[in-house]
Computed example of a mutant assay.
Amino acid sequence: MSDNNGDGDDYSATVLGSHWFSGPQETPQQTLVQPQEAVPDRVEGSVVRFGPGVTAALPAPFPVTVEPAVRRRRGEWRRYTLAAVILLAVLAYLAWQRYGPAIDVRGVTVATADPQGPGCDSTADVVAVVRTNGRPGTLTYRWIRSDGTQSEQLTERVPRGRKEARLHLLWTFQGRGTYAAQARLQLVSPGQRTAATQFTYHCAGQG
């Protein structure tokens, strides 16, 4: 149905059914379901099983006993202690032998093998005896002769346990006559020491 208004515009109205004015439909009230108490499905001896696939802990098939700690006898502890002390003493001795004090010179003497001195056209054997403390090491020395000559610097290796080192000087004489000779050992290291001996070369010859 339409009427003409003063403006001359067409106007139309639509009648809505009553179902357009109804509110949202009521939903049924939700009901909370209380969980039922779990009930085991079977009982096997002292083991209760709940539901399929769930296995409770099985009791031990035999009693488990824990043995008390055995107390060691006093004699065993003493034996172990004595062995440890002996081992430590041996290790300390070996360490002292290897890393202990170095070689030390206690004294030096020089003499000829023949107290009478060399004869005509012969060689005098002059021997220096160096006394040490028995430790391993190296002696450094030189020989000085009374004729104005001297040797180069020499070395002598002293092994462990040896308390004496013998150093030799061979001095050769030739010709007729008499010569008062002196041989001197100069120890350079360890420490500085000097020792000397005197002897006479005598060769009368034939006139």
Rank of each mutant, 00 (worst) to 15 (best):
Q206W: 01
Y99P: 03
G119Q: 11
T140N: 12
R79D: 00
L58T: 09
Q34M: 07
R145N: 12
T14C: 05
T155Y: 05
D9K: 12
T194V: 12
G53E: 10
G191C: 02
D114T: 09
A165T: 05
G205V: 03
S146Q: 07
A95N: 15
A124N: 05
L88Q: 04
R98F: 05
Q30D: 09
L154D: 09
V43W: 14
R193L: 11
V129N: 15
T55I: 05
G100E: 09
T112P: 10
W96S: 06
A69H: 12
Q192I: 00
Q97L: 06
V108F: 03
N133L: 07
R42P: 02
G23V: 01
W96M: 04
R106N: 12
F199G: 02
S151A: 06
S146R: 06
P24V: 03
S46P: 07
L169P: 00
S146D: 12
A92V: 05
R106W: 00
A113N: 09
S146E: 08
T178M: 10
I86G: 15
K163V: 09
R98N: 10
T14I: 10
G137P: 05
A165Y: 02
R160H: 12
G45E: 08
T109P: 04
R166M: 05
R157Q: 14
V66S: 13
A83Q: 00
N4E: 10
W96C: 00
Q29I: 02
V110F: 06
G75M: 01
L82R: 12
V70I: 11
A56K: 03
G119F: 06
R166C: 01
Y179C: 05
G119L: 08
F62R: 13
L91T: 12
G175E: 08
T155P: 08
W77F: 00
S12D: 14
I144W: 09
P35D: 13
T27S: 14
